[in-house]
């Protein structure tokens, strides 16, 4: 069985991104920080639940006391949802950093002419680039999410978490996958339109933040929270929380509205990419 034709392109993109260590360090510091923070929380809460004061030292004893006093209940799914909420703008940033330059820089450097002169279809080319950006997005979103889930599974007595809340594993995976896939597609779409990586990054943030701010304003002014379905950030949260089965008291509109909103945006992105890439070939 041979590897798909887009695989070398994807691999080359991954290797190229790996060479620049400073952006990697800066972009992944916060997701890793959040990951450790939430994992530590899970560790402490499970430890406190099991009364493990002797292994955790004063910190754990304080946690046990706090748990008793404030009746803190351990909700891993809620913690995962909070992790995705806190790291959502960083997810946009790191996916924009790795994805926004891929197509426009190829076009500026004329590299697309070289790719298209090989037995590589437009779909292969886009898939190769998409896989590259997806990889880096997954490293900052899916991997930390799964690490938190893994911490819960490992810390829970007799794998209780996996037995009782096994669907959270799939929920986390689906939430992460949806987030990364959505932003990856968006980043490639703006990259296909923009002339420079910087402009593409600005456009991507504008496409994420402007609808977010506008939908927030509309929701406040018109007293209808459903307007917030127009914000990709909110819609991703809504659909993702549905996967995790986390209750959302603020966002009381059908989940499929958000799903439809995200699908529509992704469809537009795919169309933009297809149209732009087809035009490249004509120019080339």
């Amino acid at each position: 069985m041979t590897a798909p034709r887009f695989a070398p392109l994807a691999w080359a993109g991954i290797r190229l991104g790996w060479k620049r260590k400073l952006p990697l360090l800066l972009l992944y510091t916060l997701p890793v920080g959040w990951m450790l923070f939430f994992s530590a929380q899970i560790f402490m809460l499970y430890g406190a639940e099991q009364g493990m004061s002797e292994i955790g030292g004063p910190m754990m004893r304080a946690m046990i006391t706090a748990k008793r006093i404030f009746k803190i209940t351990l909700d891993v799914k809620f913690l995962i949802s909070t992790f995705f909420l806190y790291s959502r703008l960083f997810a946009v940033l790191l996916i924009a950093w790795f994805g926004c330059g891929l197509l426009c820089e190829d076009r500026r450097a004329g590299a697309h002419v070289l790719y298209f002169s090989r037995p590589l279809t437009r779909l292969d080319y886009v898939l190769g680039r998409w896989c590259t950006v997806f990889f880096y997005g997954a490293l900052g979103v899916i991997v930390p999410g799964m690490f938190i889930v893994g911490s819960a599974a490992w810390m829970s007595p007799d794998w209780q978490f996996v037995r009782d809340e096994g669907e959270a594993v799939w929920g986390t995976l689906a939430f992460g996958f949806l987030t990364v896939a959505f932003y990856s597609t968006l980043s490639l779409a703006v990259s296909a339109v923009a002339s420079k990586k910087s402009f593409a990054m600005m456009a991507m943030f504008a496409l994420v933040l402007l609808p977010h701010a506008l939908s927030r304003i509309l929701a406040r002014l018109l007293g209808e929270r459903a307007w917030r379905v127009l914000s990709p950030l909110t819609s991703l949260g809504k659909v993702g929380n549905h996967f995790l089965d986390v209750r959302q008291q603020f966002y009381q509109w059908p989940t499929w509205w958000s799903a439809a909103s995200l699908c529509a945006i992704m469809l537009v992105c795919c169309c933009v990419i297809a149209v732009r890439i087809r035009r490249w070939e004509v120019v080339a």
Binding site: L89, V92, L93, A96, K197, S198, F199, M202, F205
Partner: peptide
């Protein structure tokens, strides 16, 4: 080298956080 890209990160991620 890429002030727009870094600036976008600063303004809409760091500042927002």
């Amino acid at each position: 080298k890429r002030p727009l890209a870094v600036g976008v990160g600063y303004a809409f991620t760091m500042e927002a956080l």
